[in-house]
Write a protein that binds this DNA or RNA. Structure first.
Length: 394
RNA sequence: GCGUCGGUGGUAGAGUGGUCAAUUACAUCAGACUGUAAAUCUGACGCCUUCGGGCUACGGGGGUUCAAAUCCCUCCCGGCGCA
């Protein structure tokens, strides 16, 4: 993998560039489509291609449990397995330590509200994951069986799954965890990072896969900066910025980190994908973003438009024969009406998920492409302002 | 015509003297969703309300009872059986 910066935007950390992988080029900033289980939910590989997606990211935890990494390996990797021939990534499974662990059964999510209280994280009853220095023990959400993920086993699994870019195994902490825990977790993630590099070197003799280290640190400036320095100094090919944020943190915390991370390596803001957050992330110097939001929200009937979100299940749309967006060039908008989508959702037809996912992915992919264009022509900040004014008016 | 079973909220269908404005599901109306435990989840869902409560409701009418969706009488409607 090679990364080169084409243009930096004055007065910001934003940059436009290009990542070269053995399966193709990624023009950055770029939105990475999420195909957790080697499928972008509701879409075929052909549809993903037609949307202009550049990269697909799958998840180690999910593919390890089902169908198993051996099968994916025999298929030639998750890309060939799902008929995606472009660049690929895998997440390490570290996020599942959060979503199945500390966050399990709680309202805490990837983007928390600022007033979420700090909690006693010693109670782990009912959780499906438990974190120790060795790794994370998981109870499969599929059949309840117990599994252990370590930095070494995650590297092995990701090697077998065979993506072009993979992530170090990290612990994504809950924003409600106390400072002391975050600090302790950070040193654990750092130790794991070194173990990941060591074990990956042994597997990947020819340097076929790029390995990204993950910067954590919660909402604390000192921890974020410490993480950026320590992880940033290791021999990674790129970096992921992880953790759970509040809305405001995405601009601030990411800036703290990217001011420190080596400039010449790509930065991936993990799990972020709402319009304003993408703008903030790009402005703060991130090159890659992946997010389930466009597809999940699509499946649930929420559609992006330049005038904000709309819930296509609302009764007003049953007789609205306009396009979702009049000037949108996606397949859904050029072929179907709001009333048709509203009908498919109400009738629980699978095509509803497909058409909505296509529209939302098209919307977000084009949005990030436009961010790249406007970095190149110097109008990024104007574009950000005019877009956000319209999208978030009300 | 006789006998018999049944008529409950938008629908299906519980309830069979008080804890019933009435279980549940679906439908409906909204909301949430940010490295996918997610084609998921949450809330509302008779009318009014100063949120204490009030009012009208379980086919219609009448009755028994302190109290009826629940018991009795009668009428209407439907299914089934026999003529």
């Amino acid at each position: 993998m090679k990364f080169k910066i084409e243009k930096k935007l004055d007065g910001t950390l934003a940059r436009a560039g290009e990542i070269q992988t053995k399966n193709g080029v990624i023009k950055t900033p770029a939105f990475v489509t999420v195909g957790t289980k080697a499928t972008v939910k509701a879409l075929t590989a052909e549809q993903i291609r037609s949307l202009g997606a550049q990269v697909v990211l799958a998840n180690t935890y999910h593919l390890y449990l089902q169908p198993g990494t051996e099968i994916v390996k025999k298929a030639g990797g998750f890309g060939p397995f799902m008929d995606w021939s472009g660049p690929t990534m895998t997440d390490s499974g570290g996020f599942q330590a959060f979503s199945l662990g500390a966050a399990f059964g709680t309202a805490v999510s990837k983007v928390a509200s600022a007033d979420t209280p700090v909690e006693d994280i010693s109670t782990t009853a009912g959780q499906l994951a438990n974190v120790t220095d060795e790794g994370v023990t998981f109870k499969s959400h599929i059949d309840g069986s117990m599994h252990l993920f370590t930095p070494e086993s995650s590297m092995k699994a990701q090697w077998d799954i065979g993506a072009d870019m993979i992530f170090a195994f990290d612990e994504c902490t809950s924003p409600t965890a106390p400072y002391e825990y975050q600090k302790k977790s950070l040193s654990r993630t750092y130790e794991w990072a070194k173990r990941c590099i060591n074990s990956h070197e042994k597997l990947d003799k020819k340097k076929e896969q790029a390995l990204f280290g993950v910067v954590q640190g919660g909402r604390h400036q000192d921890l974020r900066e410490e993480a950026a320095r320590s992880i940033g100094s290791l021999e990674f090919d790129g970096f992921g910025i992880g953790g759970s944020f509040t809305k405001d943190d995405i601009a601030t915390a990411v800036t703290w980190v990217n001011k420190i991370l080596p400039e010449e390596k790509p930065r991936h803001l993990l799990g972020i994908g709402e319009p304003r957050d993408l703008f903030d992330g790009v402005e703060a110097g991130c090159d890659l973003f992946d997010c389930i939001a466009p597809t999940r929200m699509g499946r649930h009937g929420t559609l992006h438009t330049k005038d904000g979100r709309l819930n296509i299940r609302n009764s007003v749309f049953t007789t609205d024969f306009n396009r979702i967006e009049e000037d949108c060039t996606c397949y859904t908008c050029t072929h179907h009406t709001r009333a048709y989508l509203a009908h498919l959702f109400r009738a629980d037809e699978m095509t509803a998920a497909t058409l909505a996912s296509m529209h939302n992915l098209h919307f977000i992919l084009r949005l990030v492409e436009k961010m790249r264009e406007t970095i190149l022509n110097g109008t990024f900040l104007d574009f950000k302002q005019s877009f956000c004014e319209r999208y978030y008016k009300k």
